[in-house]
Simulated assay, not measured.
Amino acid sequence: MVCSEGRRMWGCNSPERMRLPNSRATSSTRLRAGSRTTLRLITLPVICMLSDKLPVLSTLARRIASKFKDKNWTGRYPMAIKRGLLALLLLVTAALPVSAQYPNRSIRLIIPFPPGGSTGYAAKVLADELQKVLGQPVTLDVKTGNFGINALSELVGQSDAYTLMVGSVITNSMTPVMHRQDIKFDYDKEVMPVTRLADFPSVVMIAPAASATTLKDFLASLKAGSGKLTLGTDFIGTFVDVDTIQLAKTAGLKVAYHPNPNGANGILADLVAGKSNIAFLNVATASANIGKFKPLAVTGARRLANFPDVPTMTEAGYAGIGTSNWQGLFASRHTPPDVVQRVHQAALSAMRSPEAKAAFDKVNAAIATSATPAKFEDEIKAERARWQELQPEVLALPQE
């Protein structure tokens, strides 16, 4: 599309005005005319860019453009024209906002947990759709361990948004509170929320060999036996700890935790093996492993299509228990604001695609994006205030 400013300067309201000279012209005339036409074609996009985006430089563009109407000038000073165009192009490139040039190469998307969990699922869907929106490859890079801090550290010192992270309520809301002493950098000065991506309900599950058929029956059997809930988790300091503590209090049970560094699939394996007796696993992992566990309840406001006969926590008699397991996109705090906005808008476009909707519907998760990065950050700050109050009780849990 040719901008109105470009047409006005060139006097070329139709392509006919820019056609090459006919065959009756002499070879030298054709050469000079062809050079002028070629230079017009090269310069026209630059003129349009300047007039539309950079009015301050458009005067310089008009001066160069006006010279193309002087046949003697274009014939006598071909090198001057080329040098002028080169200088103009350099000025345009330097003056463009950073976001207009982003991205011009592949993007690395950090994941803090092993594949198989909700964070990895959300990251894979986002990467597939984001590269369609941005026109550059988006590669996944798993950095596990240290309460998610190893993944967070990848953002430290970055400033161009070519390294991003898909984090979660655990790594980007709880870890900065529960494990602040283990973070060797200032989290709030290095990590910036961009947008929430999705919410994954949890499935409250026990081993398939367990005799209980309801959550109340299961808790009652523990009360009469060991008197203890042993939860499977990635590490201490997660929302699963909080939910299990609340659940145990309703039945007068003690709580211990059994960690597994291999993510959701490892936690499920420990549950089946009897190393833990309860797990709150995300619905993506649960949906992929139906038949390997006994579901007793689901968190969230409604029943899940993949588990239609399993009651919600409210229906099971435990209203208010069940933390939102969200995933979100994060960048370095040093990223230019216009690039952050570019990434935010691109992520929203990616998550609105039919393919993304189908992928999350498949596992009964819900797409939930943030209107602005600031709104997402405010939500996380409110959560962190709650984790601060619960930190002593959570970190006091014994390990099994």
Rank of each mutant, 00 (worst) to 15 (best):
G6I: 12
G6R: 05
M9S: 02
N22K: 09
S23Y: 07
S27K: 07
G34H: 05
S35F: 15
S35L: 11
T37W: 00
R40C: 07
I42Y: 00
L44G: 05
I47C: 11
D52P: 05
K53A: 12
K53T: 13
L54D: 13
V56Y: 11
V56H: 15
L57N: 07
L57K: 12
S58R: 13
T59S: 09
R63I: 06
K67L: 11
D70C: 12
W73L: 06
T74D: 10
G75D: 11
R76M: 14
M79D: 07
A87T: 10
L89M: 12
A94Y: 06
S99Y: 01
Q101H: 13
P103G: 07
S106Y: 05
I110V: 15
I110H: 01
F113I: 00
P115R: 09
A122Q: 07
A123L: 03
L130V: 01
V133Q: 14
V133E: 15
P137Q: 01
T139P: 03
V142C: 09
K143F: 05
F147P: 01
I149F: 00
S153M: 04
L155H: 01
G157L: 03
Q158H: 06
S159E: 08
V166F: 02
S173W: 03
V177C: 02
Q181A: 15
I183V: 12
K189G: 12
V191T: 05
V191A: 01
R196M: 14
F200Y: 13
V203T: 07
M205F: 10
A207T: 07
A209Q: 15
A210D: 14
D217N: 04
D217V: 07
D217R: 08
F218K: 04
K223S: 03
S226E: 10
G227N: 11
K228S: 10
L229F: 04
L229Y: 05
T230N: 06
D234K: 05
I236H: 02
I236W: 08
T238R: 02
F239G: 13
V240L: 14
D243T: 00
T250H: 15
G252V: 11
P259L: 03
P259M: 09
N262I: 04
I267Q: 15
A269Q: 11
V272H: 06
A273S: 12
G274Q: 10
K275Y: 09
I278R: 06
A279R: 08
F280N: 02
A284C: 00
T285D: 05
S287I: 04
A288H: 00
G291W: 05
A297Q: 11
V298A: 08
R302N: 14
R303I: 13
L304W: 04
F307Q: 00
Y318S: 01
A319N: 05
G320M: 11
I321H: 07
N325D: 04
N325S: 09
W326N: 06
Q327T: 15
L329R: 07
R333A: 15
T335I: 02
P336Q: 02
P336I: 08
P337W: 02
A346E: 01
A346L: 02
M351V: 11
S353I: 13
E355H: 06
K357P: 02
A359Q: 03
F360H: 14
K362D: 10
N364C: 06
N364T: 14
T369L: 04
K375T: 15
K381E: 08
A382Y: 05
E383V: 01
A385Q: 15
Q388Y: 04
E389K: 12
Q391D: 05
P392M: 11
E393W: 09
L395Y: 06
E400F: 14
